[in-house]
Design a binder for these strands. Structure first.
Lengths: 212, 212
DNA sequence: TAGATTGTTAATCGATTAACAATC
DNA sequence: TAGATTGTTAATCGATTAACAATC
């Protein structure tokens, strides 16, 4: 699908969700068309970069007119794979795991959380927005019954890699990791290590004016 | 402090917390020295890049020997500003806000959460690990009494920018934003927009093999 | 001393920006 | 048609990698 089959760079991939956010907002507020120049001002990028980015995936604009907001938004939705449905599970039903389960935005984009898993017997059995918290020992059984595309890891650091290994063993093909460690997986598994504390530490670094 | 006063690039800044994670781990497990080559294998970077990165901040190694793990770890801790103490507040005491308050790792690095703020009267008055949840209307009063360095925004999208404006008005100099919108602030305020859903959307993009 | 590994300069690579012909 | 704006090529800029002298 990508134009000329040329691999899309990491930098471009990271900008796509941002385009999607802005375009969805504009679409919702009834804006019909946008030029790369206008969009560049809104987003703090250059118009050149925006046109280059979009043209990694195809020509979505029209000379002399710009881009149709709704059309472009839909195209980027497809690029991000948000036109599909995904089954998701959350490993670790602490505050962060529960926060993911409670956030309705993921569902709206096709990410359906089917269950949370935890080791804590006080959590096992209860439900969050109708999503059950199950015993972590039942994970293999669950995965044999339900095709899970993405697993979010919200466990403490020490159990994260072990859980990832078990999940991959059962065929899970994508890991969204929130544990403060880089988890590893075979090449055919997509891994996204989020590392919230890393982003906090860049704040304290930047608060030191010497590096700005 | 940065060598030759040359501004440190975004890419280097983003890698510093990762170095810190690995070095802290090695220090804890009793490893005394490491060469850039060994570290490069552990971290999946090149040895060249590691030496270039460290030399943005100073010469921490020794020819023929490599780097002293403890010394290097401490230097990077200082670069990240983790040798200092920060007062933090969390705006929005939902699951995500509570998750931040419950995570002890931030405190260990000098980030002390002093209070959470929420609009929900059912939450106001209770405590998380001894940290009180206060009424959002008392934020200005609180900030006049307590110097707050960093505010984490865990509110819904629609109130995020408004809260940021109020906080900055009261002198808060850094914003750690989890609401799914890019919040804006004057140049002297450090802003880190986290956007958890963006990272999820890059997963679904990557699951489409055309872009890999 | 000989071997190892840094710090740093030079070369390469890739990403961003600029320019402009194509075209709506 | 004239004006506007894209898609795309070329130029620039910056980041990564390679190489090697310095030195422990």
């Amino acid at each position: 699908m990508s134009k000329e089959n040329k691999r899309v760079s990491e930098a471009v991939i990271r900008r796509m969700p941002k385009y999607y956010r802005y375009l969805k907002e504009m679409k919702a507020s009834g804006i019909k068309r946008i030029s790369s120049r206008e969009l560049s001002k809104k987003m703090g990028l250059t118009a050149s970069q925006i046109r280059q980015d979009f043209n990694c995936f195809g020509g979505f604009g029209q000379q002399g007119y710009g881009y149709n907001v709704e059309e472009l938004c839909d195209e980027i939705q497809k690029i991000l794979g948000l036109h599909k449905e995904y089954n998701m599970i959350v490993i670790g039903a602490g505050n962060l795991g529960q926060a993911l389960a409670n956030y309705s935005g993921f569902e709206q984009e096709g990410f359906n959380i089917k269950a949370l898993f935890d080791i804590n017997p006080r959590l096992v059995g209860i439900s969050i927005r109708g999503i059950p918290i199950l015993d972590i020992d039942h994970i293999e059984g669950f995965l044999s019954q339900c095709e899970v595309h993405i697993a979010a890891i919200c466990t403490p650091k020490k159990t994260a890699q072990e859980m990832v290994d078990r999940l991959i063993e059962c065929g899970v093909k994508a890991i969204w990791n929130f544990a403060p460690i880089d988890v590893n997986a075979p090449d055919d598994v997509v891994v996204e290590n989020v590392h919230l504390s890393d982003t906090l530490y860049t704040i304290s670094l930047r608060m030191n004016e010497d590096y700005n």
